[in-house]
Design a protein around this nucleic acid. Structure first.
Lengths: 229, 229
DNA sequence: AGGCGCTCTCAGCATTCGCTGACCATACAG
DNA sequence: CTGTATGGTCAGCGAATGCTGAGAGCGCCT
């Protein structure tokens, strides 16, 4: 799952935000001041940053600008008192993606952070949403798949796995790679689980699951997806 | 990629918006006043226009009306102070597609501009106001709906939700997407609320609410609306 | 202004779904 | 031929979803 960096000096808000984001499944790192936040951001490369404008030492606005200049694609949601954003120009100049004024609703903050993250992650569709190879067709927009014209129902995980195979076709993929990129860094299933899911894909999509053509086994190495046509 | 025209006199906002949209992949042109904006709009034919109502010289509302009369299909998102849009009717008269009041969140502006562009670009989105699928009929101009010929009363939210489903038929829609596009940026319900509203729609419109045909659940992904006929 | 009705929201419970990891059988490499 | 890696089956369990009911906010009518 994604990582969130919270730059905030008030320990109470620190704790509250930490709990909030943790329960939503995020990994949370907390920085007490701007310098620490900036450093952490560079090393950690979080999916999103929650930044309090009122910080000891370095002004929050400089932190924001630094983060944005260093990695423009990291979404930053600014936390600020009402008076500070009387001038909304400031926020635009900072390059912040969104802001929430104190006192804020935790749920609103969550929603805005998640929306900001999703926005940056959006251009992931490297390949087309509709592909076909052999007697298999896949539509990742409608999430509809078919083998020999017959519709096939895939689960969420199977779809993610298939997507990864298609995006990395004609290349050998290790199980560890699949665990990292498809399952993510926060869940740690066995490599056997990967075998299981690959088998499911074969059974659902291969013409003869016992003699796989597209999802090939590279014995001792991993798997390789071959388009076929 | 698409081109955005920003009509804004404040150089600071100019710069900020320019950077904001550029990082999103748009080509940005800036006009400092209404006359220049109108001229640029005619020559450039941008995909969308961001228009500040507070402009030197020509009033922003006249600029908006001119743009809309010249090319009604160019989406215009108006940037205005709170007091100016006390009456939303004014905006409708102007022909603006959407508006954002200052102080605005950068992300909200982006989202509204992109949503406006998406609406105008998608001929499928401008579906007829009267549609029917299966034993269900929907008339979005009269706001009348029926199942098996029997009239069904929908609430405002249910109508918006149904509209969104119809406009994005045959495509998988996540709960987060629904929260953003149907509920908007000012309320922050849980994704479970989405489930509830979808269930309401099913109970009111599905022949057998327990076995939904049109409002399908994509387990672990979201929902998908299927017209059927 | 006060009462009434509507509906949105959310908590909680019931149920379904499918991921996970055990197991055994089989194929491959040395 | 032997050991290891992979194919395949199955049950348990956690997570996702369906559904109900209560509370709160809001507009409308009196």
């Amino acid at each position: 799952m994604s990582t969130i960096l919270v730059v905030e000096d008030d320990p109470r808000i620190q704790k509250a935000l930490h709990r909030q984001f943790t329960t939503e499944g995020y990994t949370v790192h907390v920085a007490g001041d701007g310098a620490e936040g900036l450093a952490t951001c560079k090393t950690l490369k979080p999916a999103g940053v929650v930044l309090d404008l009122m910080l000891p030492g370095m002004p929050g606005r400089d932190v924001c600008k630094s983060i944005k200049s260093w990695s423009p694609n990291t979404p930053v949601v600014v936390l600020s008192a009402v008076s500070e954003v009387a001038d909304k120009v400031l926020l635009l100049e900072l390059g912040a993606d969104d802001y929430v004024t104190k006192p804020f609703s935790p749920r609103e903050l969550m929603a805005r952070v998640q929306a900001a993250i999703r926005r940056t992650q959006k251009p992931t569709g490297s390949t087309s949403n509709q592909v076909s190879f052999g007697c298999i067709t896949a539509d990742f927009s409608a999430m509809e798949f078919s083998k020999d014209g017959a519709p096939v129902v895939l689960t969420a995980n199977e779809i993610k796995l298939l997507r990864y195979f298609i995006d990395h076709a004609e290349r050998v993929i290790t199980r560890e790679e699949l665990l990292n990129d498809v399952w993510g860094y926060t869940s740690y299933p066995t490599t056997r689980t990967v075998d299981n899911q690959v088998m499911k894909l074969r059974q659902k999509l291969e013409a003869d699951p016992a003699k796989p053509v597209h999802f090939r086994t590279m014995h001792g190495i991993g798997y390789k997806f071959v388009g076929g046509s």
